[in-house]
């Protein structure tokens, strides 16, 4: 199966000279289509840096990162942005819905940026909100939704573009445990449908819901285990 994410000997450093920080240090991983991966590790271990690279938000200092077959170091800002739009569905810890924008347009926005006509974009957004059981909340602003509902809207926004992979950064971190479990159930269902999911978390219970766990420490992969099927 084709690799959605390929990292070969990836190093990412911040700063210069004596204050240089190696956030990632010689990381080699491949994530295949249909996998459900949790990236775990203590605070400062390099999880966010990894997410920025997988999410095409940043480029490595050394080594090669390929997402959906594209080498990030070879792309200019425009192509990198386009790759994010087509390949990645982001789900953030604090939901990050757009202010002053209702649920429907929040979900439709990635399609707007892609140039899909407004009418079609909203139609597809509505379909996705319906799939996630949010059809009666489409005209609500984020301030009028509960945390769990906001995260569903965010997941709908991540799914509506039919990305190669869903990239979720602590998606349950801001939710109570019951709502958090519902969101994890949703991810499990999506994975059963064949969606590739990469989840960043420091919560081991959450990580257990994934089928593969990559553990980072000081910027290095120290463990990579798969559930046996």
């Amino acid at each position: 199966m084709a690799a959605v994410v390929e990292m070969s000997n990836v190093t990412k450093t911040y700063g210069e000279g004596s204050s240089i920080v190696k956030a990632l240090d010689g990381v080699d991983i491949r994530i295949k289509k249909g996998e459900f991966v949790a990236i775990v590790g203590a605070s400062g271990s390099g999880k966010s840096t990894m997410m920025n690279l997988i999410g095409c938000l940043d480029r490595p200092t050394k080594g090669v990162v390929k997402v959906a077959g594209e080498d990030l170091s070879e792309l200019n800002d425009k192509k990198l942005t386009s790759l994010r739009n087509y390949a990645i569905g982001f789900v953030f810890q604090s939901f990050f819905l757009l202010p002053k924008t209702d649920a429907l347009d929040n979900v439709a926005t990635p399609l707007f940026y892609r140039g899909v006509p407004a009418k079609e974009a909203r139609f597809r957004a509505m379909e996705m909100l319906t799939k996630l059981g949010m059809e009666d909340r489409y005209s609500h602003q984020s301030t009028e939704l509960s945390g769990g509902q906001q995260q569903r809207v965010a997941i709908a926004r991540a799914l509506v573009t039919e990305p190669s992979l869903i990239l979720a950064d602590e998606p349950t971190g801001a939710l109570d445990s019951k709502t958090g479990k519902q969101v994890m159930d949703l991810f499990a269902d999506l994975n059963d449908e064949g969606k590739t999911i990469v989840l960043i978390t420091h919560d081991l219970d959450v990580a257990k819901r994934a089928t593969r766990r990559i553990t980072l420490k000081d910027g290095k992969v120290i463990n990579d285990e798969r559930d046996k099927k």
Binding site: F96, Y113, R157
Partner: peptide, 18 residues
Amino acid sequence: ERTREIGIRRAIGAQQSQ
């Protein structure tokens, strides 16, 4: 004030020109 919003928009695929 809207730096975060701009970040979200860029993440989900807004080009600089947009």
